[in-house]
């Protein structure tokens, strides 16, 4: 079930999801980051697993777009050595200070606002809501996006793949 959420996240990040609203990307383009630090997330949900999913899943689709993504687990260790364990505390730090510590062009902050799996008899509906914020090394916000994604898997795990594809195409 959660695998499908991975795919949704990946599809969103790789730009395979049709996005009807053209966002103003001029700040992002002006900053033109080449390296991105993905810091541990802020989790506003009760799902204790969600931050692990997001942190381990984000690097691949971002790196596949050509950015240098700082190794997330190494970055987590470095932050912990600085006394920063909680996502909340990390997100409170001055971005410029963090960027300098890692020598990163930009920092990606993710807040997980919703992570629901509703079990309805034999089907499951998963709804996730993320807030993304990217800040350049001088502290300017260069991109932000709120995203709600929903997925309804078939309860029969052996035959889900096709459904995953079909669901993906709706986005």
């Amino acid at each position: 079930m959660k695998k499908a959420v991975w795919i949704l996240i990946a599809a969103f990040l790789t730009g395979c999801v049709a996005q009807p609203v053209k966002k103003d990307m001029s700040a992002f383009q002006a900053a033109a980051p080449r390296s991105i630090l993905v810091v541990p997330t802020v989790n506003k949900t009760l799902d204790v697993d969600a931050p692990n999913y997001v942190l381990s899943t984000l690097p691949v689709p971002l790196a596949e777009k050509g950015y240098y993504i700082f190794p997330v687990n190494t970055a987590k260790m470095v932050l912990e050595q600085e006394g920063l364990y909680e996502g909340e505390r990390i997100h409170e730090q001055a971005p410029a200070t963090l960027a300098k510590l890692f020598d990163a062009d930009a920092i990606l902050y993710v807040t997980i606002n919703r992570w629901d799996a509703q079990y309805i008899l034999i089907t499951t509906k998963v709804t996730v809501e993320f807030e993304y914020r990217m800040v350049s090394r001088d502290g300017t916000e260069i991109w932000s996006e709120s995203k709600r994604m929903q997925w309804q898997p078939d309860s029969n795990s052996s035959g889900t793949n096709q459904n995953i594809e079909l669901n993906l195409l709706r986005y």
Binding site: I7, A10, A11, T14, G15, C16, V17, A18, E64, N161, I164, E165, L168, L169
Partner: peptide, 13 residues
Amino acid sequence: TASAAAMLGGCAA
């Protein structure tokens, strides 16, 4: 699955 979906979506990655 992901790559199949991407192709079907018209944006092979």
